[in-house]
Simulated assay, not measured.
Amino acid sequence: MTDRTVHLTASVLLSYPDERLIEALPLLNAAVAELGPGEPGRRLAAFLGHVSATPLAELAEHYVATFDLKRRCSPYLTYYTYGDTRRRGMALLRFKHAYQAAGFEVADELPDHLGVVCELSGRGATEEAVRLLREHRAGLETLLRALREEGSPYAEVVTAVLATLPPPTERERQAALRLAEAGPPAEEVGLEPYGHEALVRVRPGTPGGSR
């Protein structure tokens, strides 16, 4: 239940911050308090403290600037391994099939979004979610490194998620090192059956944004 609580909380915190986040703060703080003094609880508590002390408009601006405008901070896990290549489209289908097998449908987001994977765990399919996270651990590590370099508080949330996974194997460590050195492939060929437009998320407050 502890990992599931961490993942469910992370899924909310990795969504675009709006009034629903502010309304959920009492429940989120209570859930995190029950996690105890371990690293996931401490990291999530630190981020919740940042949310409580920061105006909503500033939170939203930082979210857009970090996740929407910086490719190096992409929340989409398959991007790190496959870039915008045809092979990424097949990887996205693997996520979609895992969700379908768990009875979980993704309607408004690509299935490899870290927050969506965490939500899968929060809804009870923790084993399936952890498998997907471990398969893309190198991408998670790369995202965390980028967030830390940007000085983003979201590094706390990603650190909490990583803390729920088993220690990395040698193979996983080597994969993370290779990805850090080479970066994602740069070929732009489309993501059938996921069109390229699916990668563009226009947020409120950005040109053309609407709710």
Rank of each mutant, 00 (worst) to 15 (best):
P153Y: 08
P153R: 11
E141D: 15
S152T: 09
L147N: 06
A138S: 03
L133G: 03
L165H: 04
A155H: 12
P153C: 10
L144S: 14
R171G: 07
G151A: 05
T142S: 10
E170T: 06
E170I: 02
R148V: 06
E135A: 11
E172Q: 03
R171L: 08
R137E: 00
L162Q: 15
A163M: 13
G139A: 03
R173G: 10
S152M: 03
V157D: 14
R148P: 07
R145G: 08
G139H: 03
R173L: 08
P166A: 04
L165N: 06
E156R: 07
E149V: 00
E149L: 06
P153Q: 10
R137Y: 00
V157L: 07
A146W: 09
A138G: 03
A163W: 07
G139M: 04
G139F: 02
G151P: 01
V157M: 11
Q174Y: 06
Y154N: 08
P153N: 12
L165K: 07
E172W: 01
L140F: 02
L140G: 08
S152R: 08
A146P: 02
R171N: 04
T164S: 11
L133N: 05
R145T: 10
P168Q: 15
A155R: 14
A163V: 13
P167H: 01
A146M: 09
P168E: 10
R148M: 11
V158D: 14
L144E: 15
L143E: 06
L132P: 01
T159L: 15
E150V: 06
L144T: 12
V157Y: 11
P166L: 02
T164Q: 13
R134D: 12
E156K: 05
R148W: 09
R134V: 12
V157R: 08
L143R: 05
P153H: 09
R171T: 10
V161L: 12
L133V: 04
L143A: 05
P153T: 09
T169L: 00
T159A: 15
P166W: 03
E141W: 04
Y154K: 08
E135N: 11
R134W: 06
P168T: 12
L162I: 14
T164H: 13
R173S: 08
V157I: 15
V161T: 13
P166C: 02
H136K: 13
E150M: 07
V158G: 12
L144N: 15
L132S: 02
R137I: 01
E149D: 06
T169R: 05
L165P: 03
R134Q: 15
E149A: 09
A160F: 11
T164F: 11
E150L: 13
G151M: 07
L133Y: 03
E172R: 00
L140H: 06
P167D: 02
L165G: 04
T169Y: 00
E141L: 14
R134G: 09
E172L: 00
G139V: 03
L133W: 03
A160Y: 11
E149M: 06
R145L: 14
E149T: 01
L132W: 00
P166R: 09
R171K: 12
P167Y: 00
T159Q: 15
L143F: 08
R148Y: 09
S152W: 03
L143C: 05
L132I: 00
P166G: 01
S152V: 05
T159W: 15
E156A: 14
E135C: 06
Q174K: 11
